[in-house]
Design a protein around this nucleic acid. Structure first.
Lengths: 177, 177
DNA sequence: AAGCGAACGTAGCAGTCGCTACATATCTGG
DNA sequence: CCAGATATGTAGCGACTGCTACGTTCGCTT
């Protein structure tokens, strides 16, 4: 029972129950161990969280890679539609709930949170650059532009203003009509 | 010592120390009371948080109203620049840190969080609509579009990807060059 | 003045927190 | 074959959690 075998189980638990309220004993039960052993392996709860965030970032990267397939999109609007569909998928929603906790932790400068969030955003940006339409005049800037729009849409959706974001995307010519 | 005189002091405490980790005794000390009295006034910690979120939304609305002044912007890019400057102001940063906790709570459907977040986004949307340039072809859709972009920028900034968002805004023609 | 309800302090409940001391197992290398 | 490292269980520490029981003080009304 090593760290690497523990991390997926811990990940599953925080995906289900959140990261902020996670405490050692429930985490340990989810991983089939005791709090004693978690401290033994990770040294500290804080170190555990840092390791866990790193692992979650890697899981996210793998999920993006798996969704990477398909030919490049025809238009920027198609790129947006494609990734919004990916984020709206039911399988992604536990991760989306977790994501906002990671953002909140990064905003408060908790150790490990910024690093994990930046890694995931870097991954998403790379994915977007690879998805940009073939003849796009500015794939590099365009990918950054789309990422900004997409994250804004995700946030508004999280607080129940998804329709507002949809209307904004439509007005910005970023939704296929 | 009524609820309404307590709420500003409680607000100051959560702005400084966060909302997720807030517990009754520190809150009470910040408000100059005891945990006993907080329960007496609000009935439950959960009810206190709900009331507090409602109050925070009102404070946010008032802050936006106060910043409302000035003639309408000349271009959409000016609107974006204006509100990003407002959000980057040092006085707004405790609120920004709190905001991501509110988003995370809304994403997890904690009681009161969605309501407060929606109220604040509604307020921001109204402010944006009032700030749209005079001759804008689609002020209503444009405001929603700008709000999506602005919130995306805020999120990327929170996780340390502010430069990425800047480049995106530039590529989208939403920053005055 | 008597009575009453709201406002408040003190003390404490049962439970959880991160973490540790201590005793054991189980495995590995000389 | 046995020393030493690695792994695990049990029990518990002190601090903190939300919340409550109980008693007191205050301002007000009748």
């Amino acid at each position: 029972m090593t760290k690497d075998s523990l991390l997926p189980l811990l990940t599953a638990h925080v995906l289900a129950h959140g990261l902020g309220g996670a405490s050692l004993r429930p985490l340990a039960k989810a991983a089939g161990t005791s709090d004693r052993m978690l401290i033994y392996h990770f040294g500290t709860k804080e170190a555990l969280i840092v390791d866990l965030l790193g692992h979650i970032a890697k899981v996210y990267a793998a999920a993006l890679d798996a969704a990477m397939g398909g030919e490049p999109a025809a238009t920027r609007a198609d790129v947006v539609a494609r990734i919004l569909a990916h984020g709206d998928a039911p399988a992604m929603q536990p991760f989306m709930r977790l994501w906002w906790e990671i953002v909140a932790g990064a905003a408060r400068d908790l150790p490990g949170y910024q690093l994990a969030a930046q890694a995931m955003m870097r991954e998403l940006l790379g994915w977007l650059e690879g998805q940009m339409p073939a003849g796009d005049p500015d794939p590099r800037g365009g990918a950054r532009y789309l990422m900004t729009v997409i994250e804004g849409t995700a946030m508004l959706t999280a607080v129940g203003h998804g329709d507002t974001a949809q209307q904004g995307l439509l007005a910005g010519g970023l939704l296929p009509s």
